[in-house]
Structure formats: structure tokens, C-alpha cells
Computed example of a mutant assay.
Amino acid sequence: MLSSAAPEPTHVQVNYRKYDGTLHWNLRMRRLGEDEHGVWLGLPADSVMRKGHDPEVPLPEAHVILFPRDAWWTAVFNAAPRSTEIYCDITTPPRWPSPAEVTMVDLDLDVLRKRGAPAPILVDEDEFAEHQVRYGYPAEVIAAAEAAARWLMAAVADGTGPFDGSHRRWLAMVDGVQA
């Protein structure tokens, strides 16, 4: 058992799951630190991730992921030239079973902003509707996911909260990335 004085692990296993518990996107990331927005993890360019137990998927650009405290989303900030600059997954609040693992349930809806685009877009509403039936999402989960999507659409559009450029210092910490 880790004492409160034990150092944080340098790497964290990130496990997005579907509502039935099956493993979805998963990867191992470097712990960068914490700020008022939550915990930041990063990966350098030319890393990999997996969807479930499928073969590795290459990640050509560096990126960081923000895991906020008690919010129904996570946010990926991608380095250029990746066309999607910000990709927010609507999820259950991230949980930390241990300092070396974070897990959450992916609730299908995503808010993203393409690099240089004036506004974010909401995607996968059809998948969200389909999975409400397939997985039997409770009414409170549906309401929380929809509220998170509305909040993210406004925050990304307005550049508020962690979408004010806060990610740049964390992205600069990832090998090979300039601020």
C-alpha cells in the first residue's frame, strides 16, 4: 500500500470502457502533473493506443489528456499538425482505482474542434441514442451526459476553463513539442 508520502507513479494506465464494462480505448501515458482543472497526462509523438484488445493504433502527434475532478468528460489536446485540436469525450467522472490507473465509461457523445475552426461540433449523437437502448443508460446518466455536452460546447467555443490555452504548458512538457 502506498503511503501519502509515496511519489506518484510516472506512468498511468488509461482505460476508457463502455457502459457494459468492456474495454474501449486504452493506453499508457506519462503523468505530467495537476492544476486547478485536474490531472494532466501526456504522450509524445509516435506513440500508440488500442481499441479494446485490437492491434495498436499509431498516434503520430503528441497529445495531452485532461482528467477533470468530478466532471462528466475528459479532454484531449493534440499537437499540430493533427487536424483535430481538441477532442472531448463525454464520460462518467474519471475514477482512480490506484495512482497508476484512471478509468471512466465512454458515453459516446464527443465535442471536438478542428484546428483553425471557429466553433466546436457535437458528434456521435446517433451512437449515444443507440447505446441508451442497448446498454440501458439510466435517466440520470443521460441527463448528465447531455449537460456535459452543452457545457463543453459553450466552454470550447468561448475558450473558458481549461480551453483557454491552459493545455499549452502541459503539451510543451511532452517530448518533442514546442509551446
Rank of each mutant, 00 (worst) to 15 (best):
146 E>N: 06
129 A>M: 07
136 G>S: 12
148 A>I: 04
161 G>C: 09
158 D>C: 13
174 V>F: 10
170 W>S: 07
175 D>L: 10
152 L>Y: 08
135 Y>V: 00
144 A>G: 14
125 E>F: 03
157 A>E: 07
136 G>D: 02
154 A>Y: 01
171 L>H: 09
129 A>K: 07
137 Y>C: 03
125 E>L: 11
132 Q>R: 15
149 A>M: 01
129 A>D: 09
140 E>Q: 13
151 W>Y: 12
146 E>W: 02
173 M>V: 08
164 D>T: 09
132 Q>E: 12
169 R>F: 04
141 V>E: 03
142 I>P: 02
173 M>C: 13
170 W>E: 08
152 L>M: 11
174 V>R: 13
140 E>A: 10
139 A>N: 05
159 G>R: 11
172 A>M: 08
164 D>L: 10
150 R>S: 14
138 P>Y: 00
147 A>I: 05
174 V>T: 09
162 P>T: 07
127 E>D: 14
136 G>V: 04
161 G>D: 14
161 G>P: 00
173 M>A: 15
158 D>A: 15
138 P>A: 12
151 W>F: 10
136 G>F: 07
133 V>D: 05
132 Q>A: 07
153 M>T: 14
134 R>T: 01
151 W>R: 15
134 R>N: 00
153 M>Q: 11
155 A>F: 07
140 E>H: 15
165 G>W: 07
151 W>G: 07
152 L>Q: 12
150 R>V: 12
147 A>F: 03
149 A>V: 05
147 A>T: 15
154 A>N: 12
137 Y>R: 05
164 D>V: 04
137 Y>N: 03
164 D>C: 08
157 A>V: 13
124 D>R: 03
162 P>D: 08
159 G>W: 03
155 A>M: 07
143 A>W: 01
169 R>V: 14
170 W>N: 10
145 A>M: 08
161 G>H: 13
149 A>I: 03
134 R>S: 02
160 T>F: 01
155 A>G: 05
135 Y>W: 06
146 E>S: 09
127 E>R: 13
124 D>N: 13
147 A>H: 09
176 G>P: 05
133 V>N: 00
153 M>C: 14
155 A>L: 06
133 V>A: 12
169 R>T: 15
167 H>Y: 14
150 R>P: 04
144 A>K: 11
145 A>I: 00
173 M>N: 12
164 D>M: 05
149 A>L: 00
157 A>P: 08
126 D>P: 06
163 F>V: 12
132 Q>W: 05
139 A>W: 00
166 S>P: 10
125 E>I: 05
137 Y>E: 02
128 F>K: 06
170 W>F: 11
172 A>L: 12
130 E>K: 10
130 E>G: 02
143 A>K: 02
136 G>Q: 06
149 A>E: 05
141 V>P: 00
126 D>G: 07
176 G>K: 11
127 E>A: 13
163 F>D: 11
153 M>E: 13
170 W>I: 11
165 G>C: 14
135 Y>N: 04
152 L>R: 11
159 G>C: 13
124 D>C: 07
136 G>C: 06
149 A>G: 10
169 R>L: 07
172 A>E: 14
157 A>G: 15
152 L>G: 08
154 A>L: 08
164 D>K: 11
149 A>F: 02
174 V>D: 08
129 A>L: 10
154 A>F: 06
148 A>H: 02
131 H>M: 03
130 E>W: 02
127 E>T: 06
138 P>F: 01
162 P>S: 12
176 G>E: 13
146 E>H: 08
172 A>N: 09
